[in-house]
Structures are given as structure tokens and as C-alpha cells.
Design a protein around this nucleic acid. Structure first.
Lengths: 200, 200
DNA sequence: CCTACAATGTGTGCACCGCTCACATTAGAG
DNA sequence: CTCTAATGTGAGCGGTGCACACATTGTAGG
């Protein structure tokens, strides 16, 4: 049994992130409060402020963690996709991640993203370049930036529409089939996407 | 000058919705509190509870209003689009709406959507069928349901990625061009989209 | 080894929030 | 004209984010 109630926690930051993840899964974004996190970590209500400037900093950290997990999931779906089918598998993994971790996914794409956490913008840049890299490998001739944007938007939109109950998400198979056909449809037109404007 | 400080407001519900919209535009979703709405409407902190069961009911009502405005904007962009170009114009209007009213747009697609406000689900059903109707008219031979889902997801995803600063939204023209080329790319493949599974 | 300091956790307190409940006022039906 | 139901008021409870002064402790320099 670990020495109970040491004054210094040891790794409170990590404990807070873990507690925040749990609260997010259990009660959704509304249940994620600094105080609840502190309670769950067995620590005074203001202790987390030594590790996170404010609530936004906490959720940004959680979101950054989410981005890393998402990239892992995508890589697991297929390490280096090149055919449209392999790319579709990655797209399915993206939507599955959103449906498996709805509150986390929402936190990743919520309001205070733009001027905030360095860690967070870095994590989103990683995934953006990841998608672009995949598309570049799969469609060497095309405007990879524009095509990557298109496929990311399509998959991202599918994820959100499923999350909001606008589409039939009753079984994972139905969702997967839906994503596959839609993405495949977009890719059959890839060569035509060479006149697109700037996209960063 | 209207008779000041009548005990009964007259149309507090509408005043609350108006105040909520203003707060949403000014301070984002975080600034939208029942109490702030009451203050702005010049009424006691608990008065709004006579018209909205709780905070969620308020934002659901605001969201429903947003859906109606969005459908109006789309219809204004083009009353009955049939060519891909006209459809692209509608898509551009969709993304513009999101960028013009970011907090409202986010409220429209936020967590408590599924089992809630009758008014809200009705409003989303309207826009869903609207998109489907357009696609059916434009591409009579295709699986309108699947294609509508694809284009809605694509446009919805573009809107969110722009909102989150993941794409270049520096000028409306750049955004519009981006949306147009992406949507056009999808539409050139429309006839191929006839084997899609169920999508409601 | 011991001491001073910086890092980390505690406690108090303020303003605000959502929401409940008892009460005041008033519009409008009978 | 009255009486009831709709509407607005006020006090109050528990929760929240956050700022502040304070307590504790790991650790680096003497």
C-alpha cells in the first residue's frame, strides 16, 4: 500500500489529466470541472492551479492528448495507406474514434483552440501534416493540400454528423460502410482536383 | 417612450431569445447564462424559468432559431439549385453562415442535441430534407440520400475546420473558392454514388 | 549536515452560476 | 367584478472558477 496522504502528490499533473479523461467519459464536458478533478485526485480544490493556469489550459492539455491518441488510432488502422481502400480504412478509424470518445472528440474541436496552448496547436499541426502526407503518397500527381483538405473535411463532417445523431450510427458496420463509400466516391475524382487554391 | 418597468414584461420569451443571441455573439457560449439573459432583458434572475425549463432549453431554442436562419441563408444563396455550380453557391453560403455566427453555429451542433427539444429536432430534420431535396433535383439518377449525406458532411466539415482555424479563412473569397472547388470535385463523381448503404 | 529557497499543496473567500421554492402582481376568463 | 392562472420577484442552496495568503517539503549551496 502506498504511503497514504503524502503532502506532495508526486505527479499531480498526470493524475489530473487522468481524472479529467475519466470525468469526460462519465459526465461529458459539463462534468469536467477543476474542482471535480481535484476531488478525484484526492487533493485540495486549488491544487491543480499549480499545474494548469485555468480550466481552458486543462482541457487544452486533454485535447492535445486526444490528438496524439487519434493519430495513433489512424496509424494503427493502416501504417502507410496508399490505395483508396487503405485510405478509407483510416477514415473509418477517424469516425470510430469520434464515436468511441464523443466528449473527448468534442473537446478537441471546441471553442478555445485558436490562440491557445502551444501543445495543442502543435498536435493539430501533426495530424494535418499526417493527412497531407498520406494523400501525397496515394495521389502523387494531385494537389495534395487541396485533396487532403477535402478528405479531412469530409471525414470530419461525417464524424460530427454521426456524433449529433444526424446519420444512422446504430451499428459500427453501418457507419463503416457509410464512410467507406463516401470517401471512395471522393477519391475517384482525385485527379480532377488540381486547380484548387491555397490551403494551409 | 414605452411605459417603464411594467411588472409583466409583455413578451419575455422573445426578449430572452434576443438577449441570448446577443450574448452569444459578444462573449461566446461561455457568456450565455440564464442570469445574464435576465439582466439584459431587465428582469429578475429567475424570471426566464417561466419560459425555459433550464439552460439547455434556452440554447435549444436559440439553436432552433439558428437552423431556421441557416435554411433562409441557403435559400437566399439560390432558391432551387440544380447545377453543380448553383449547389456550390449554397455550400459557400453554409460555410459563410458558420463563419459569420461562430458561437451560434457551435451551439447548433453541440452536445445536448439527441433526445432534446422537439423544436430543435424538427428544425434539423427540415434542413436535412432540404439538402436531400436539392440533391435529388440536381442528380435524379443517383442515390440522393447517400449523395446528400456526402455533400452535407463535406460542407459541414469544411465549416468546422474553418471555424477551428485549421484552414485559411483570411478572406471570404479564399474560403468561397476553397469550398467551391472541393464541392465541385465531389459532384463530378456523383453518378458513381449509387451503391451506398442506408442513410437516414 | 544544515539551511534557505523554490516548488508544491492547503484554506479562505469572493463573485457568479443554475435551480428551487415561497411569494407578489396582474391579465383575463367567468 | 371577482377569482384564478400566468407571470415576475426574492431569498437561498450547492456548485464553480479563480485569487490570495499560508503551510509543507524536496533540494541545492554553504
Amino acid at each position: 500500500m502506498p504511503q497514504a496522504a503524502a503532502y506532495h502528490h508526486g505527479d499531480l499533473r498526470a493524475a489530473c489529466l487522468r481524472a479529467a479523461r475519466e470525468l469526460l467519459e462519465e459526465d461529458g464536458s459539463a462534468g469536467l470541472s477543476l474542482r471535480a478533478v481535484a476531488r478525484r485526485a484526492g487533493v485540495s480544490p486549488t491544487a491543480p492551479y499549480r499545474h494548469f493556469a485555468d480550466r481552458d489550459a486543462l482541457v487544452s492539455a486533454v485535447a492535445a492528448e486526444g490528438y496524439r491518441e487519434l493519430t495513433n488510432e489512424l496509424a494503427t488502422a493502416h501504417p502507410s495507406p496508399s490505395t483508396p481502400e487503405e485510405l478509407a480504412a483510416v477514415a473509418v478509424a477517424y469516425v470510430r474514434f469520434a464515436l468511441d470518445h464523443p466528449a473527448l472528440f468534442r473537446a478537441m474541436f471546441a471553442e478555445p483552440c485558436d490562440p491557445k496552448s502551444e501543445e495543442r496547436v502543435a498536435a493539430t499541426a501533426v495530424i494535418s501534416e499526417y493527412v497531407q502526407g498520406i494523400v501525397r503518397a496515394a495521389f502523387p500527381g494531385s494537389d495534395a493540400g487541396a485533396l487532403a483538405t477535402a478528405v479531412w473535411a469530409l471525414v470530419h463532417g461525417l464524424a460530427f454528423l454521426h456524433l449529433d445523431g444526424k446519420l444512422d450510427a446504430s451499428t459500427p458496420e453501418i457507419v463503416a460502410a457509410q464512410v467507406r463509400t463516401t470517401v471512395n466516391a471522393l477519391f475517384t475524382t482525385a485527379p480532377g482536383l488540381t486547380t484548387a487554391p491555397e490551403a494551409r
